[in-house]
Nucleic acid binder design. Sequence first.
DNA 1: GTCTATAAGAAGATAGAC
DNA 2: GTCTATCTTCTTATAGAC
Lengths: 205, 205
Amino acid sequence: MDTKQRILDEALTLFSEKGYANVFVGDIAERVGIKAPSLYKHYKSKKAIFDAIIDEMNRRFAEQAKAMQINGTDAAQDAGIYENLSEDRLLKLGREFFLYYLHDDYNRKIRKMLTLEQFHDKELAKAYSKLYVDDPLSYQGMLFGYLTAAGLLKTDNVEIMTLHFYAPIYYLLTVCDREPDREEEMLNKLDQHIMQFDRLYGRTK
Amino acid sequence: MDTKQRILDEALTLFSEKGYANVFVGDIAERVGIKAPSLYKHYKSKKAIFDAIIDEMNRRFAEQAKAMQINGTDAAQDAGIYENLSEDRLLKLGREFFLYYLHDDYNRKIRKMLTLEQFHDKELAKAYSKLYVDDPLSYQGMLFGYLTAAGLLKTDNVEIMTLHFYAPIYYLLTVCDREPDREEEMLNKLDQHIMQFDRLYGRTK
DNA sequence: GTCTATAAGAAGATAGAC
DNA sequence: GTCTATCTTCTTATAGAC
């Protein structure tokens, strides 16, 4: 595999665990299997590696956002979500979503890295808020808007209903990032959260 | 004011903004108005300063937790919360609580510092979870348990109701920590959250 | 307890051979 | 593109005078 990309991968792993300042160029090089000076043939500085990670992140997530906008409603329709939103189905969807974001290496590392660097500058703060606040609330809000219009959910404030769904999930996710041992405990809470959400906002019960 | 304490205060300020590794002993000293070597007469190392901050934090919050256990229900009773839980009152309480934790210097700095150091070791991870997950859910859960028993709230799962109340609030708080410019936007969402929560779980409407 | 001077070492980055 | 050797700067920490 391409060394230039491997450097980004190993750097992301280290940055997500220790934070930018606690990772040394030599650490990254060692993981890649080269010496530190060789790394400077690929990137002109440590900062340039970090910037490249952020660039790739923006590219990847922009692509994903585009795909979701295109497929969002269609996919939901294909999945029959507008006709069949049973509690069992909702639980399964919630768990799948949760476990994907929790365990997917790329998502987990980016999330942890941004957590550690979010106060470093405004760009990073904005990136964090976009990824974990504005975009998911906007996307979920759109989906819940359709579900409400279709009579499967009931509320006069879709935006807050979306917050009520998403904030606890994200909160439980951050506990797992911090203390992986508590994953089972949080999965249990996740199930209860979704069941309760369904009872509060679901119309077809 | 006592230099030893001033060192802790200035160090906390810097750690909460830049993270431990990005703060140099000289920075702390400069803020205190002394030179770096003088600082070593008060603390034997940079790490010792950090540890002292954590120790003080544990001491302070343990004290506070004790006071809340003693006063929790009594204070609620004195405030007439069991008889009069109007939406207006709930909104006011929510905002007060939110703005206190958002703007109180000590709480804000500790929260941001732990956010930046939470993955550094297990002790810090546990401290974070205790302060911002387990303790508040436990305390609020107790209060909501009483309110439910008193017939002011309705649910068959107090624990999840508490999560539904607290997680969105904490989530909005973290947005403000990251992007102070969005405080007004988040306060607006906070109000809507509390109103919706009241409509979902309140019994007396 | 504060200072100046300085040691000791770490970390980012470059030079130049291969 | 990778290496060894090295430079430079930064950072923690100590020594010792006042």
